[in-house]
Design a protein around this nucleic acid. Structure first.
Lengths: 336, 336
DNA sequence: CTGTTAGCGCCTTCAG
DNA sequence: CTGAAGGCGCTAACAG
């Protein structure tokens, strides 16, 4: 069923090793024989067997990616396809494929990553999120396997790891400051799972901005939830049970959308009664009513930059490491 | 760096083949030695090398997937992540990984698929869209490689191919009929690239419904565009230049959203002046104003069912083929 | 139930 | 510039 290197060799009257060298475009083969061999390869419809190549040469041409909760609703967050686009754009230029292992919880996730790496299916890995003291990061680092994380690998050796992240503290500060500047007084916050660094950071930014102007950050106006519309809805209701903030910072547009619905259900008008601001600049933001003010985080760029670092790390080796910070940009609309 | 099957064999005082059999949990190995060998595997931290396994056994554990335009904005359509979730949910149960090859146009796409398949990186492929007389389908079919398509593989041997699809003619008919029943008179349509079967079918459904009640389907009220918000916007403007339909069928919610914006820009109120209906029941639909009436197509189910068929096809062989039709469900909201 | 013997298809020294 | 030989790590008959 498969035509092998031997068949080509025979048909071209050369040795298998010569064919192998032609495949790799080795400079030690004369252009003439290259041409001839290539000719034969086409005629026979030869395609090198990737598995054999990998077995012999020790690299797979695959980059593994770990999505958070690929089997969960959360996976539908537009951030991921957008980051994937960036990843895929650069991988395309390098003729590499993307491998990903379905998993539905932390345990499976760990097992999946382990299998990918230890069984030699990938040359490197990109992690699309980071938890605080992330187990996966720790492990990959400890075995010295090439990887890059989209997110901050804190508190692990920041200097020795490849990572790309938004300045999430800054983003948290920026959106809070924006509300303060607009004259909002009592500003609450809805944040995601605080085991994820991105949420920790944005919350921290919020606190910094509040403290800077001497505002208190009461727990009554603070809620934590899973990043989805319902999460935002329920979180907002919870806050409203404690009082009525004049504005609410949400660390994600999904939250914002849910929160807006909750406000509406309680009879509040946005932005008059309550101002809402989000992060991620989802496509939807412009179509909802009122259009949602948000922060562009450049997911495409994050993905693109991440693999660029990873590819370098793979090429250069473990002495290489670098990181890139991508700044968010506030997108003003009408929700606050 | 890697502990191999030989190391385990030596340490456990058995032959490599025994270890191999333990790995595969062969029934021909005594529970006792299995236990012992497993013990040793753990102690040594042994992990089978996937490439070597594949090379020897001829299967990779990978399923390839072909997304349309993974490097394009269109890739951000929520349909794909949702279908992917379904795919990944069942693959997870089978310990298989997903491989995907970045490509940004039809040529690269073909090359990518070819490489994937011919170089033996995958055991099967799922195509996430189908064009009329699809080149990829034709090719996969001709080499008898296991694959499944989400979409209708027309006009190729429907009976001998695995596929899963919505009844898109029915969906087209249903939404058009809905508008007719609501009393709309002049009904236009915005459709996507007519090389894709899904668009052909929905358009066909529209025509059928119109003809059934003796309505003409003037070309003036018909527009074709790329499936995205801007496409819908421009298509709507084009239609509006030819007159004012009382309602417009769009084959995708992205279109609908763009069309609504165009209407608003022209001073029309939805649904009073113009009714709009879409397909896909995107999450957004409920948050826009007015909420968009649409059709749930069950992307998750499409993905899930697709791989189920594919897995069977791989297991049973080329004599197996089957297809599943998944019916859409109208979701009434306020846009018409 | 377990071991032996050949490869799977390619890459990579080492010769020439 | 090209060929021969050995091996990557595992599986799969075939013996026993």
């Amino acid at each position: 069923m498969g035509v092998t290197i031997k068949d080509v060799a025979k048909a071209a009257n050369v040795s298998p090793s010569t064919v192998s060298r032609v495949v790799q475009d080795s400079p030690r083969i004369s252009d003439e024989t290259k041409k001839r061999v290539r000719q034969v390869m086409n005629e026979l419809g030869y395609f090198p067997n990737a598995m054999a190549q990998n077995l012999a040469s020790k690299n797979t041409g695959n980059i593994g990616i770990m999505l958070p909760k690929p089997n969960d609703e959360e996976f539908n967050h537009p951030f991921f396809p957008e980051a994937l686009r960036g990843i895929s754009a650069v991988l395309r230029m390098h003729d590499r494929d993307i491998l990903f292992s379905p998993a539905s919880n932390a345990v499976e996730e760990r097992r999946a990553l382990q299998r990918m790496v230890l069984s030699g299916k990938v040359d490197g890995v990109v992690l699309l999120s980071s938890r605080i003291s992330d187990e996966l990061i720790t492990w990959l680092y400890s075995i010295n396997f090439p990887f890059v994380v989209i997110g901050n690998p804190r508190p692990l050796g920041l200097e020795r790891i490849c990572w790309v992240d938004n300045d999430n503290v800054e983003i948290g500060r920026m959106i809070t400051q924006y509300l303060i500047d607009k004259g909002y007084e009592d500003i609450g916050i809805i944040t995601g799972d605080l085991r994820f660094v991105v949420n920790i950071d944005r919350l921290e930014g919020y606190k910094q901005a509040m403290e800077a102007v001497g505002k208190s950050t009461s727990r009554a106006y603070m809620a934590e939830a899973d990043v989805c519309e319902d999460g935002g809805y329920n979180a907002m209701l919870k806050i409203l049970r404690n009082g009525k903030p004049s504005a609410v910072v949400t660390v994600d547009d999904m939250f914002a959308i849910g929160a807006m619905r909750a406000c509406r259900d309680r009879g509040y008008v946005i932005p008059n009664d309550i101002g809402i601001i989000g992060v991620n600049n989802m496509n939807v933001d412009q179509y909802i009513t009122p259009p949602l003010t948000s922060v562009e985080v450049y997911a495409y760029m994050l993905g693109k930059t991440a693999v660029e670092l990873l590819l370098k790390r793979i090429e250069i080796g473990s002495e290489y490491s670098d990181h890139v910070i991508i700044h968010g940009r506030l997108v003003e609309r009408a929700s606050c």
